[in-house]
Structures are given as C-alpha cells and as structure tokens.
Simulated assay, not measured.
Amino acid sequence: MSIRPYRDIYRRKSRQIMVGNVPVGGDAPITVQTMTNTLTSDAKATIEQVIACAEAGADIVRVSCPDEDSTRALKEIVKESPVPIVADIHFHYRRGIEAAEAGAACLRINPGNIGKEEKVKEVVAAARDHGCSMRIGVNAGSLEKHLLEKYGEPNPDAMVESALEHMRILQDQDFHEFKISVKASDVFLAVAAYHGLAEACDYPLHLGITEAGGTRAGSVKSSIGMGGLLWAGIGDTIRVSLSADPVEEVKVGYDILKTLGLRHRGVNVISCPSCARQQFNVIETVGMLEERLAHITTPMTLSVIGCVVNGPGEARETDIGFTGGGKGTHQVYIDGSQAHRLKDQKIVDHLVELVEEKAEEIQAEIDAEKTALDSKNSTATSAAE
C-alpha cells in the first residue's frame, strides 16, 4: 500500500498577483493579513495600529472606508504604513474610486452590496488606472438577492456562483489582478465553498472564517476551518477574524501557518501541559519565556518540558531544549545534544540568553544563504545578457 508522505502539503496552483509590493498566490509565501478597528478617519490612531500589526508580522493590513472622511485620511495612512494597505469597500462604490486615488494597494469589494454591474466596472477602471489589485469578497451574510431566491439560503453553491459572476465582470474588463474569498461564520459552509471555488478557478484565494468570535473561540474556529483548507493546499493569504486586538489576529495567523510548517516566524515554543512529574513550574516559565522572546523574528524552536519522560526526545528535535531534572537541577540541550546543567533560579534568564544567541547564529546563516543566492542569480542574469 502506498501512503502519501504525512508531512507533505501540495499547494493548489494559482496565478500570482501583487498587493503593493507583496506577491500573493503562485509560489509566494502564504501571507498574513489583519484589519484595523480604529476609525479610519482618525489617521493617527489608525497608523499606530497599522505599525503595531506590521511589527507583529502582518504582511498586509486592511482598513474600512465607509465614508469620505475615511478615504481622505487614507492618503496619509498609506504614506506612513510600512505594509500595503487594502481599502475595504461596502455599499458606496465611490469610496472604492476615492481609495484607489488615495493610493490603496488593493480594493476589497463585496458583490452582495456594491451595487449594479456598471458601478463595479467604474471601480475596476479606477483600480486599473491607479495600479490597484482587487479582492472579490463574498460573504454568506450578504449574498445577492437573486442568489438567495434561487437557492433559498446561503450555501456553498450560492457563494461560489456569486464569486464567479463577479469574476466574469472583472475578466470582461480584461482585469485579472484580483483574489477571491468566500467567507462564512459557519466552518462547514466556508470550507465547502472554498473547495468548490478552488476547483472552479485559478485565482489566488484569501482565506477566512468570518465573525469567528473572541480570542479563544475564534482562534479555535479559524484554526479548524483554515487549517483544514491549508492542509489541503488551498489558500494564498489568510486573515483570522477575532473580536480582539488585530495584533492577536496576526499572532494566531502565524501560529496556524507555523503548525502546518507552511511559514515560520519567531520562536516556536514546544512545551508540556505540566503534571505531578514536573521538576519546575512549567506554565509560569513558558509564560515568561513567550513574553521575553516576543521580539525575536528569526524562525527557531525551543522545547520546555517538565520531566525526563518526553524531554530528551523533544530536545533532540529543537534548536534549544530544556528538560526538568531532580533536585532542582535540569538539563539544557543545544542542537539536540546535551550541553550543560542548569539550576532553578536561573532558568528564564539563561534560556532567553541562549535563544537570543542561537537566533543571531541562525539569522546569520539565513542572510549568508540569501546573499549567495542573490549573487548566483545576478551572475546568471549577467551571463544571459
């Protein structure tokens, strides 16, 4: 019997578009998005939140543009943002045109409420004129009236049909710089719709379980829905929708990608839940480590295990490992090998120091590999010329 390699994820082949300077689709890394919850008209507050999200790792940030005050502020927001800005447009097609003129990298329109086809065409023309890409954002909660009448309720077929109808409008305008989403708060509905859309077109797909809930429940729901799709190779950019600080959305997004081995950023802490066998306070230690290592963006792994049952085994697979031992003396591992012993009172400070040193070492290796690759590409280009 032939068994598919259990770690392999074969990504769906899609065309690639650009959101500002960020590639989406094709062989580009899966990008992480979030959305501000400040008043967009308050440019200062919105810029501060955009910067915080970018520092947390957001590749793209979306802002809502419900009125003229918002699109007026957008020009300053775009100018100060370190990442591409997507303008979220609902109901008023003129806001889409204004957002394109203000420098938005992408326009998100909702087919269910943007208006007649002629209005969509005007938004498409503005996007083309100003170098914007677009997102067709279908949502189960705002499907077009004729589709609800046809299907009786929001279902996967209705959502895919909505997406394809608006895809054809953009294609008729010879506009192909767009991605598509078919979001629902119901995980089963969203997942089925995305599977149907993935088979129906080759455009990049923006994944999301909309209105997922608060931090804990929403993270679980998003992880189940998007995790299953990503595991199936579906999805080119993701947004975790939480009733929480947008920075939390970015963190959860990376955790989902990190768990599937699709993208790595920062320290991946592997830790046990703790039990009566623990030889130090695992939960307290992990909490302090996560806080003090949050500034590290270099991808690396740290295992923190309370006893010797699984500790040595986990340590063999991580960059830095720490296993609890008897009489307040524990074992530190580096690159899978025993390095030295460590007493209780020095655990957090010592591990932070080791991780920071290891991160610098790993980053230097990454930079060296990138330099070598750039040099090789440059040489090949020169030879071809």
Score class of each variant (00 low, 15 high):
residue 154 P to G: 08
residue 138 V to S: 08
residue 158 A to Q: 02
residue 167 M to R: 15
residue 179 K to D: 11
residue 159 M to I: 03
residue 163 A to C: 15
residue 161 E to C: 03
residue 176 H to L: 10
residue 183 K to N: 05
residue 163 A to L: 15
residue 140 A to T: 12
residue 133 S to T: 10
residue 163 A to H: 13
residue 166 H to N: 12
residue 174 D to S: 09
residue 168 R to Y: 11
residue 146 H to Q: 13
residue 141 G to Q: 03
residue 137 G to A: 14
residue 150 K to L: 13
residue 174 D to G: 04
residue 152 G to I: 01
residue 139 N to P: 09
residue 176 H to C: 06
residue 182 V to Y: 11
residue 161 E to I: 00
residue 135 R to E: 04
residue 181 S to A: 02
residue 164 L to C: 11
residue 158 A to T: 02
residue 173 Q to C: 15
residue 175 F to H: 11
residue 134 M to S: 07
residue 150 K to G: 04
residue 167 M to F: 09
residue 179 K to H: 14
residue 177 E to Q: 15
residue 178 F to A: 14
residue 149 E to H: 07
residue 136 I to R: 09
residue 179 K to E: 10
residue 181 S to F: 00
residue 142 S to D: 14
residue 172 D to S: 14
residue 172 D to I: 05
residue 156 P to S: 08
residue 183 K to W: 06
residue 145 K to W: 02
residue 136 I to K: 14
residue 160 V to R: 01
residue 162 S to R: 05
residue 177 E to P: 10
residue 131 G to R: 14
residue 131 G to Q: 12
residue 161 E to T: 10
residue 136 I to G: 05
residue 137 G to K: 07
residue 182 V to I: 11
residue 147 L to A: 01
residue 170 L to F: 11
residue 146 H to I: 06
residue 172 D to Q: 14
residue 133 S to H: 10
residue 147 L to Y: 07
residue 153 E to A: 00
residue 171 Q to W: 08
residue 137 G to W: 14
